[in-house]
Design a protein around this nucleic acid. Structure first.
Length: 491
RNA sequence: CGGGGUGUGGCGCAGUUGGUAGCGCACCUGGUUUGGGACCAGGGGGCCGCUGGUUCGAGUCCAGUCACCCCGACCA
């Protein structure tokens, strides 16, 4: 096969970039850090959206839309929130252009300066809590459980397609509750929704945990997260869910009357996943031949490539292919029949491998004689011949197996690269030479965390929710520790 | 914001001491092909990032400027 990707083993970053471009997922656009998500990449995002949206609604949420622009003054209301986002906000200062009097082109009209500058949302807590104030008076108005699908802008210094772009697509849930307990339960529930989605739908195994103070969302009391381990041994935060306490209620003066007649501050959560998940998908399953898609996410689960020489051969093959298309569709399997005569079969084979289509069927005259098809599996790259009779069931079965196989494969890799170390020497060696999720004792101080990051580039990805109590001493400071935390280099 | 690199057909690149801008892929036409990125023949397409300078003459030399990419600090 003609090599179109850098080798995964020798240059992982380049392999990733090549794959995104060559599989037609996305490309860079005119503005640095902004990308065009191409139809194939967007189709994968739509699959994710559909399933997540279903899960959100099943857990009692409704969708709404809040504006892109946020008055600058809103941002100054919650101190740690401002601090966290101030450095990466795009700001709108004017509302009009005019012809450049000195030549061609247009300039910003200096007379059209906004009285109050607008922030392009990096996240929507502020505008939403300003709105919730108006919506909430009594305990009868609670809870409010809203999700929005939106774009956000964070002016990052360094960007990478899908993993970190200046503008990205995501969903953000924002809920308001009468009690602390209820808000915590909401945040935990949504973390579980994410974990379930990632494992069952994307076949990406995750650790569930909470962030340390320094990694916590700006404005949150507690940040829960799901962390996944990529093929190169680096961790990727795949989703976060925040218990916001009463921080935003305080900042935006959102109170409600209780049954007892007192006035109390509202409790909040927010949670989100983004198009970054497409990066996670790529770096969990794909190989040197290209993308590998779990069947549940694949825009096309099956592709059919006809093989023929003459017109009369094509007619026969075409009829058989169309018959298979119909049967697969009737069984709820999405199938793409590529009958273009502008590309040769070999070209198509490579193309669909690059694009990660789970199952490829080739049918030619020789197959018709034997009433069979050639079937290729993307996850194992195995080829086999299958009788046409009962093909639909065979494919349904393969798709199901592929979904679990991908998860199991990724789970095994993650488990193999999750390990404990106890000394500083082991730790530095592990970070430098092995990567993966490194479980080590930590003394609980931000200072130690900071020094470890400085010295090794590894950060605490999370404190696992189910981490067992275990007496030990901090891998760096030697001070006592009650449980291990998970370290890794991260995206 | 630091360090490095690159700007030349749609994409990837070459272009020597300054002398008519080239190659591969892609594209178009015709034909032969079609079971792992076909082949032959013909054809179209370029203000050489931008601005200024040196020169009879600049893709090439000089100055400036802009953009993008990679590596760091910051981050979903």
């Amino acid at each position: 096969m003609a090599k179109v990707l850098a080798s995964k083993d020798s240059d992982y970053a380049q392999w990733y970039n090549d794959l995104v471009i060559k599989a037609d997922l996305a490309e860079n656009s005119a503005v640095r850090g902004s990308m065009v998500i191409k139809p194939y990449g967007y189709a994968i995002w739509e699959k994710m959206q559909a399933e997540l949206d279903r899960m959100f609604k099943e857990t009692g949420h409704v969708n709404a839309y809040f504006p892109l622009f946020i008055p600058k003054s809103f941002f100054s209301k919650e101190a740690s929130h401002v601090e966290g986002f101030a450095k990466e906000c795009a700001v709108v200062t004017h509302y009009r252009l005019k012809n450049d009097p000195n030549g061609k082109g247009v300039i910003v009209d200096p007379d059209a300066k906004l009285e109050e500058e607008l922030i392009v949302r990096p996240t929507s807590e502020t505008v939403i809590w300003d709105t919730y104030r108006k919506w909430i008076q009594s305990y009868r108005d609670l809870p409010i459980k809203i999700n929005q699908w939106a774009n956000v802008v964070r002016w990052e210094m360094r960007t990478r397609l899908f993993l970190r772009t200046a503008e990205f697509l995501w969903q953000e849930g924002h809920t308001a509750h009468a009690t602390k307990q209820e808000a915590i339960e909401e945040a935990e529930m949504m973390l579980n929704v994410y974990a379930t989605f990632l494992e069952n739908f994307m076949a990406i195994p995750v650790l569930k945990g909470v962030k340390t103070e320094s990694e916590r969302f700006a404005g949150a009391v507690e940040t829960y997260c799901v962390e996944a381990l990529m093929q190169d041994g680096k961790a990727l935060q795949a989703g976060t869910s925040h218990f916001l306490g009463q921080n935003f209620a305080k900042a935006f003066d959102v109170t409600f009357a209780t049954k007892e007649g007192t006035n109390e501050l509202v409790w909040a959560t927010s949670w989100g996943v983004s198009t970054r998940l497409i990066g996670a998908l790529i770096m969990t399953h794909s190989d040197n031949n290209g993308l590998v898609l779990p069947p549940k996410l694949a825009p096309h689960q099956v592709v059919i490539v006809p093989i023929y020489r003459k017109d009369e051969e094509f007619e026969k093959v075409d009829a058989a292919a169309k018959d298979i298309v119909q049967k697969l569709r009737a069984a709820g399997i999405s199938v793409h029949y590529d009958n273009r005569d502008t590309h040769k079969p070999g070209w198509k084979f490579n193309e669909y491998e690059l694009k990660g289509v789970p199952v490829r069927i080739a049918i030619g005259p020789r197959d018709l004689e034997k009433q069979q098809v050639e079937l290729a599996r993307r996850d194992t790259l195995e080829k086999s011949f299958q009788p046409m009779d009962g093909l639909t069931d065979v494919i349904a079965d393969i798709l199901e197996h592929m979904q679990t196989n991908l998860l199991e494969r990724a789970r095994k890799r993650t488990q193999d690269e999750t390990y404990a170390v106890d000394t500083w020497e082991e730790f530095t060696d592990a970070v430098k030479n092995r990567g993966g999720f490194i479980k080590a004792h930590w003394d609980g101080t931000a200072e130690t965390e900071r020094i470890i990051k400085e010295k090794t580039k590894a950060t605490i990805r999370c404190i696992e929710l189910d981490a067992p109590e275990e007496e030990g001493v901090c891998v760096f400071s030697g001070k006592p520790s009650k449980r291990r935390v998970v370290f890794a280099k991260a995206y």
